[in-house]
Design a protein around this nucleic acid. Structure first.
Lengths: 135, 135
DNA sequence: ATTTATCCTATCGGATTACTAGGTTATTAT
DNA sequence: ATAATAACCTAGTAATCCGATAGGATAAAT
């Protein structure tokens, strides 16, 4: 299950991408349109900015804007930034790998094999879909 | 991410399925072989029994056994029992559907559409794979 | 009657989640 | 300059969930 943080982040990015031009969109505008708590959204957009997905501008007329074309931002990037691993188990995660305490031999683990299948099919979709598809 | 409960449950079921015959397997045997806390595993197997996946027998020579052929137990059943929804968002879950507070129109939501794709590809794999494949 | 092994309820510390508070800094308009 | 605007940043917090444990009750075999 995705956290609300991730879900809100995706909706906010889609909102920004839908504006098309590079004029900054304010937190308040997105929060109002998408029914997201202003303060919570603030922290989410900050995370996306620090991850290099969004740029920002302070002061009047400020806000957030995309740093790249929407079609160059795959869903994998966004979800990994906000949610962390895409895989169902740490031991099959490409970007957040962790060994299982209980597994002596990973390759002998049948659950491992199944979760690799799930991971690959999910990755296929999330890599193929970009922010442009979302917007 | 799957909880340890689900992961342990899957490993335990695979262990039981691997025995082949219908002789009950004890918690202690599984816990030792798979490096799972005895008490924690106990509560997991209880859940699987109450869900109609496992049967049990008390007293000496007792333990847990499969109620159906391993090839008749799809991964979807097990994961839904232990983990709950398979979908990444409640609003795209088939068995645990919940409406989003923030979404006025579900069909207009772009995140929704993406998550349906992910759900379907995951379901395809988890429906096709049975406990027999895991074991 | 004793041993074995599941059944069941309750609890618990720690981590995570979804927010909220409140002040700081940078930019623009007057 | 000064005031207004809007992002920046750190901290905290209530509620929930997770992983695990405790300890007795029940049922079956010896």
């Amino acid at each position: 299950m995705l956290s609300k943080k991730t879900k809100y982040g995706l909706k906010a990015l889609a909102f920004i991408a839908r504006q098309g031009d590079k004029t900054p969109v304010q937190i308040a505008t997105i929060a109002d349109s998408e029914n997201i708590s202003h303060k919570f959204l603030e922290s989410i957009l900050l995370t996306l900015r620090k991850a290099g997905i969004l740029g920002s501008k302070k002061g009047k007329g400020g806000g957030y804007y995309l740093l790249k074309a929407a079609s160059d931002i795959p869903m994998t990037d966004v979800i990994r930034t906000l949610e962390g691993p895409i895989a169902m188990l740490p031991c099959v995660s490409l970007n957040f790998y962790e060994k299982c305490d209980d597994c002596p031999d990973e390759h002998a683990c049948s659950v491992h094999k199944l979760m690799i299948q799930v991971r690959d099919s999910t990755l296929k979709i999330l890599r193929h879909n970009t922010l442009a598809d979302l917007a």
